[in-house]
Nucleic acid binder design. Structure first.
Lengths: 334, 334
DNA sequence: TCCTTTTTAGAAAAGCTTTTCAAAGCGATT
DNA sequence: AATCGCTTTGAAAAGCTTTTCTAAAAAGGA
C-alpha cells in the first residue's frame, strides 16, 4: 500500500497536521520534530497524494496539449518547447494526438475536463465552433499555437504567415525566377493556408508577375500528397522554374517528384520550403526554407497559458513571432 | 465554479447518492428520477471530479510514457501506437521527454508517482539501477519498449536486434559486398547497441569476412554525429563499398557525408539503415532499411502494461516482434 | 387486510490532504 | 507569582465522490 500522511505521522510520532506543515511551511515546526518527520518521509518514500491535493487546491498543475499529428516533426518541436516551459513553470503535460479528427478531439477535451487540466494549448488545427463551445462551456482556459481565430477572442501565438510567405516568394523573384508555382494547404481545414496563399499572391503582384497567381496546387499535410500535387502542378505548368512550398515536407515531396522526373533541384527548378524542420538540413539537397521559431512557439504558448491562468488575462491577445529566411541548397539564381 | 454532484442533486431534487447511482448503476434508479438527473447533468455540463474519484478508486486511468527524444521520429511512431492502445483500453497518456538526462528522468518518475499514474512505459533508454530502484520503491508497474533488462525481471517489447542486424549485413554480403563498415550506437548508454554490433560481427564471420569486424565507428543518436562518424570511418577505410547503419538517421547522415564527398549512393557505396522511419521513404535516395514495427511496438507495450496492471503479471516476460528487410534505393549489387 | 420480500432512496463514512481554529506551552515582563 | 503574548501543536472541517448500511416504500403473497 502507498504510505499516507498518517503513516508518516505515526512513524514520527506527531500529528498529521505537523507532517503537512513540514512539507508546506517547514519553518513553523521545531527542528527536532521537523527532522523526525523528514526522516520518516524518506524512510517511507512518502509522496503526497495528488488526488487529495487536487481536491483542495482545485488545480492539477497539469496542462493539456492537443496536437494534430505527432509524426509531423513540426509538432515534435512545439512539444519540446512547451515541455521545457512546463518544467520551468511547474506543470505536467498531457499530450493528445487528434489526427485532425473532430470526434476524437472532442473526446479528448472531455478527458481533459475530467482530469481537471488547468488549461489547454490547442495546436495548429482549426478552432471549430464545436471545440470553442465545449471549451468555454467547461470554462477551460486555452490558447492557440500556430493558429489563431478570427471569430473568437482567443489568445494565440504564431508566425506572420502572410508576411513569411511573401518573403519566401520575394526571395525567389529576386533570384530572377519569373515562372513560379506553389504547393499550398487545402484551405478548408487549415488556418495558415489562406494567409500563405495571400502572401504568394501579394509578392507576385508587387513584382508584376500576376500571371503566376493561379499556379497553385493543394496538398493535405503529408509528403505523398505533395508529391501528387507537384505532379499536377508540373503537368499543367511545365515552364515553372521555382516552387514555393508551404511546408518543408511539401518541399521534400516536390523534390522527390522532380528527382523521379530527372529534373534537377536546384539546377533546373528552385524549391523553397517553410518551417525549417530538423530534417530539412539533412535532406539532399538541404532545403532553403522559411524558419519558424518552432521550439519558442511551444515555449511561448505555455507561458501565455500560464499568464492566462494566473492573471485571468493576457497582455497581448494575438502574438506573432519572427520568421527567418534560411538559404541552403535547394534554391539557385535563374 | 465547476458544478459538483451536489448541484446536480439540487437541480434534480434528489440526493447525491441517487445522482451517483445514475452514473454508475443507472438501472437501480427509477426512470422518472433518472431522467431528471440526466437532464440536470446535461444542463449543468456536469462531469465528475477526477480527483475525488481517484481518491476512492486509487486509480488515475493514466499511463506515463518516458521518451528519450521526442524529436526522433522513431518515438513519434511509438507514441502514436501507444496512444491508440490507450484509447482502446481507456487510459489517458502522460508523455515526458527525458533528453536522456538522468536527473530529469528521476524527477519525472517522481511526478508520475505523485500524479498516481497506474503504470509507466519506459522507452528505449538504459534501465539504470537508479531508475529501477525508484520505480520499484514507489511500486509503480512498468514495462520497457525497444529495450530490455538483463539485470532485472522487467517485461519488455522489442525487436530481435541481433538477428535484425545480422539480416541487414547478410543482405549486404549477398549483394556481393566484401568491404563493409558500420555506424553503431555508443555502447555505454545504449541497450540496442551491443546486440546490433554482435549481429554485424556474426554475419561477417559466417561468411568469412572477419577482417571487417573492426570497421565500426560510433555515433550518438543524431544525424550530425553520424555524419562525423562516417567521416572517420571512410578516412580510415576508404575501400568500403557498403555501410550498415543502426538507425535510419545515421544512414541519412552517412549518405549526406558521402554526397558532400561526391561519392555516389548507391553507385559507389551501398547504405542500409535501421528502423524504417516515415522519412526514410522520402529521403533521396530512398533508404534500404530494416523495418521495425514501430507503431505496433508502442501499441503492444501499452497492452502489456495493461495486462500487468489488471492481472498483476504478464504471460511472456520478454517479447520480440518481427522485423523486416525493406529494399529501396540506397543499396545495389556490387 | 396484514405480513414478508424486494426495490428504491437517503444518510453517513471513507479516501487523503490542507487549513482554520483553539488550546497548550513557554518565556518574558511587571 | 501572575499575566501577557508568542510559538507550536493537534483536532476537526472541508473538498467531491462512491459505497455501505439502514430505512422507507412498493410489491407480492396468503
Amino acid at each position: 500500500m502507498k504510505p499516507t500522511i498518517r503513516d508518516v505521522a505515526r512513524m514520527a510520532e506527531v500529528s498529521i497536521s505537523t507532517v503537512s506543515r513540514v512539507m508546506n511551511a517547514p519553518e513553523t515546526v521545531v527542528p527536532s520534530k521537523r527532522n523526525r518527520v523528514i526522516e520518516a518521509i524518506k524512510e517511507l518514500k512518502y509522496q503526497p497524494n495528488a488526488f487529495a491535493r487536487g481536491l483542495i487546491y482545485k488545480k492539477s498543475n497539469t496542462l493539456g496539449l492537443l496536437i494534430p499529428d505527432i509524426e509531423n516533426l513540426y509538432f515534435a518541436g512545439v512539444i519540446r518547447g512547451m515541455q521545457d516551459a512546463c518544467i520551468k513553470l511547474g506543470y505536467s503535460l498531457m499530450i493528445c494526438n487528434t489526427d485532425r479528427d473532430m470526434e476524437r478531439t472532442l473526446s479528448y477535451i472531455d478527458t481533459f475536463h475530467e482530469k481537471q487540466v488547468d488549461g489547454i494549448v490547442f495546436a495548429s488545427d482549426m478552432l471549430y465552433p464545436e471545440y470553442y463551445e465545449k471549451l468555454t462551456g467547461f470554462r477551460i482556459p486555452f490558447v492557440l499555437v500556430s493558429s489563431h481565430s478570427d471569430e473568437y477572442e482567443v489568445p494565440s501565438v504564431e508566425v506572420d504567415d502572410e508576411l513569411a510567405a511573401y518573403d519566401a516568394v520575394k526571395f525567389l523573384i529576386e533570384l530572377g525566377h519569373k515562372e513560379i508555382g506553389m504547393i499550398g494547404f487545402n484551405h478548408d481545414n487549415s488556418v495558415s493556408g489562406p494567409p500563405r496563399a495571400a502572401g504568394f499572391v501579394r509578392a507576385l503582384t508587387e513584382f508584376g508577375l500576376e500571371r503566376n497567381t493561379g499556379r497553385i496546387k493543394y496538398a493535405n499535410h503529408r509528403f505523398e500528397h505533395a508529391y501528387q500535387a507537384a505532379h499536377e502542378l508540373f503537368s499543367e505548368y511545365p515552364e515553372l522554374s521555382a516552387v514555393f512550398c508551404v511546408a518543408d515536407e511539401f518541399a521534400m515531396g516536390t523534390i522527390s517528384y522532380l528527382k523521379d522526373r530527372n529534373i534537377l533541384v536546384p539546377g533546373q527548378v528552385s524549391v523553397i520550403g517553410f518551417d525549417n524542420l530538423r530534417m530539412s538540413g539533412m535532406f539532399i539537397p538541404k532545403l532553403t526554407t522559411i524558419a519558424q521559431p518552432i521550439y519558442q512557439l511551444g515555449y511561448r504558448a505555455a507561458e501565455k497559458l500560464h499568464e492566462l491562468l494566473t492573471t485571468g488575462n493576457v497582455a497581448v491577445m494575438k502574438e506573432q513571432m519572427e520568421h527567418k529566411l534560411i538559404v541552403r541548397e535547394s534554391s539557385r539564381e535563374k
